[in-house]
Design a protein around this nucleic acid. Structure first.
Lengths: 235, 235
DNA sequence: CGTGTCCTTGAGTGGCTTCAATCAGTGTGG
DNA sequence: CCACACTGATTGAAGCCACTCAAGGACACG
């Protein structure tokens, strides 16, 4: 469950927060960090109990979930490899974290994290800029949840997956292929819909020739321009 | 429209970001900042053109708005006195800013702001913590937009107003009175509803004895505990 | 007094939900 | 090997909450 991490072979080397650290600081961190594995669906952190560590996502997708008393759930954030999991400077988390897929984390104690943060202005600057981008993304999602139709939401989600899971390919190629990191239920929880609605709308996108569903979780976006039109997105 | 600000008589002294600055830095800032006034409804910043300044809200309420091509609007953030307006470290805004009420700002040039930020670790730390809280709040709102009913949304909004407009009184007193800073249309744009729905649900809250509507924009929360129950809120 | 803005109220509709049934895939144990 | 259970996805039909359209009232302003 726990083992020493090795920054040299880190799968998100150069993309995670740690990229801001100088070599000697990195060596120190290498001694602080521990890798942990979680299987899909397992709970990583709980809303109720304070978390005494933070982590960088190495592989997989983490769901941040808020739940109402009667069981209604909303995914309020998705973390992809290189993203930071946990709330710096406040041990009181406001939501649960669950592994969406199998997940590998690089964990570091809260106090060590904050010491590192205060010791390295570059690191703090990077965290600040990422947090600002996180606000941007959350607000973009507020537009989706408040005003977009079910069809637009699903199209937006697929484009978001493509963007976050295939950061290299970018908008270059017109067709992109990947595995959906979430089940229908989870997509519904992220989009503020029911799983049946998601299912129906994915089918409609396929009928319109915009996507192709493969066996299992596979999906291929056939026409990103058309998808963006269907999603009412800017770019 | 523009006049030199005086930090000594600043209405948000001790609450805004500037609280992190030492006295001599504050004096320097006093020479950098300019006050600007906007009347209710006027556009402060536009999504399309880059903004070359940032500002602290001194009085009034600022709406951050995302608009879809066909005119659907969503308010993705509300700024109250002492909040920061503008996106540090990126001149590309993703949304419009409009004055909800009459608004007074304390503006400072982008380059000067960033210089100040790099010069003062305490200032950067405070901005970071506020930005993290902003993420928390945005995510809380995603839960509202994705999963709450119209009645719950309206109740949540009223409590949010009370919290942000009356920061001192807190949850102490059971009844709180204030002026609604937004019109029905604006509340609807914030809640992902139509104005008719907002109107009806406010009336229902009044019928239930939870609030009292005064003439004009005035409102009195009669039973905060009951409201929190109606809003499905934690605290 | 007309005009405009904002809010309220009513009636009817529609998009998404809800409830329910079916099916495919997967693992389990006799 | 097959019955069985279980999970996730799909499909259908009915219902409801919020939307849409429409009208009217309250108030301010010129």
């Amino acid at each position: 469950m726990r083992r020493r991490s090795s920054c040299a072979v880190c799968p998100v080397k150069g993309a995670a927060l740690c990229q801001a650290l100088a070599t000697e600081e990195l060596l120190r961190l290498g001694r602080l960090g521990h890798r942990r594995h979680y299987r899909a669906g397992s709970v990583i952190a709980n809303e109720d109990q304070p978390q005494d560590w933070l982590a960088t996502v190495l592989t997989g997708v983490v769901k941040l979930i808020r739940t109402l008393a009667d069981g209604r759930r909303q995914i309020v954030g998705l973390l992809f490899p290189s993203d930071l999991l946990g709330r710096p400077f406040s041990s009181r988390g406001l939501w649960d974290a669950e592994a969406g897929t199998g997940v590998e984390l690089c964990c570091v104690g809260r106090s060590q994290f904050e010491a590192l943060m205060h010791g390295s202005p570059a690191l703090k600057q990077l965290l600040l800029e990422r947090t600002l981008s996180e606000v941007d993304r959350a607000r973009e999602w507020m537009l989706l949840l408040g005003r977009k139709t079910a069809a637009e939401r699903v199209a937006t989600l697929l484009l978001e997956f493509a963007r976050r899971l295939r950061p290299t390919e970018g908008h270059a190629k017109e067709t992109v292929e990947f595995d959906l990191p979430l089940s229908r239920t989870e997509m519904a929880d992220y989009l503020g819909l029911r799983l049946e609605t998601v299912s129906r709308n994915i089918w409609e996108l396929e009928a319109a020739g915009l996507v192709q569903i493969s066996e299992g979780r596979g999906i291929r976006l056939m026409d990103q321009k058309g998808l963006r039109r269907a999603a009412q997105c800017e770019p």
